[in-house]
Amino acid sequence: MIMEYLDLLRLQFNNRVRLREKRPNILQLEAPLYHEDGDMMDIFIEIPKNGGKIKVCDFGMTLMRLSYSFDIDTPNKERILNRILSENQVEETDGNLWIETEPDKLYSSVMQLAQVVGKVSNMQLYRREIAYSLFYEKLQEFIEENLRNYTPLPKVFPIPERDDLEVDWQLKLPMKPVYVFGVKDYAKSRLVAISCLEFQKAHKQFTSIVIHEDFENLPKKDRSRITSAVDKQFISLEDFKENGLSYLERAA
């Protein structure tokens, strides 16, 4: 019975598919479904030994491949992965992405899994955005929860005609405002350095604080540039969480 459906699968793939016995009861699909790097997608069909449903799965190959350039190691990345899986009705067990299916739905299940494999693999293309949003999410969360006394104001433009010079948050202190910037990478670090120098040139009265995701990760020249341009830096979000409040109390 199952062999009939495997023949049907071949037909549906226009005979551009082969099934190769990987292990007893495990067939590897050889079909024109490729990763961006040219490797064929690792899709397997697990034939049940005693009846039951067929499993279309990847035996952890997708997450293994992804892990060397983009690891699912933060709650935000985990959330995005889970969303991809749940929206496409694919399960994950110990890294194995799988779908249980009926023999007559084999083709659509293979295509469904292939789509998810592609989406999960492409998470690495969005690594900067994913990491960026996580850092900002965490920083925003901390500022909103812990710095309420300073009336944090997001997205401030101290020089109205310069909409390219943005302050992430402005904190209200008695003497002068504090401009807070989150810095994830060298590009943002350079923008913050330029912005602060422009604000100084425009005779704005402010104190600038930078919270780095990882100060040590910045190129040496960028560490020098930003150190010279801003008033206070926290080398990590943890550093800011630990020492930010006491710094602001002293500055107030």
Binding site: K22, R23, F59, G60, M61, M64, R65, S67, Y68, G95
Partner: peptide, 16 residues
Amino acid sequence: VFMRKNQKFAENFIIG
């Protein structure tokens, strides 16, 4: 350097 070996299939590995 990354070293990966599939738990189910030992022949499926990547070292890069």
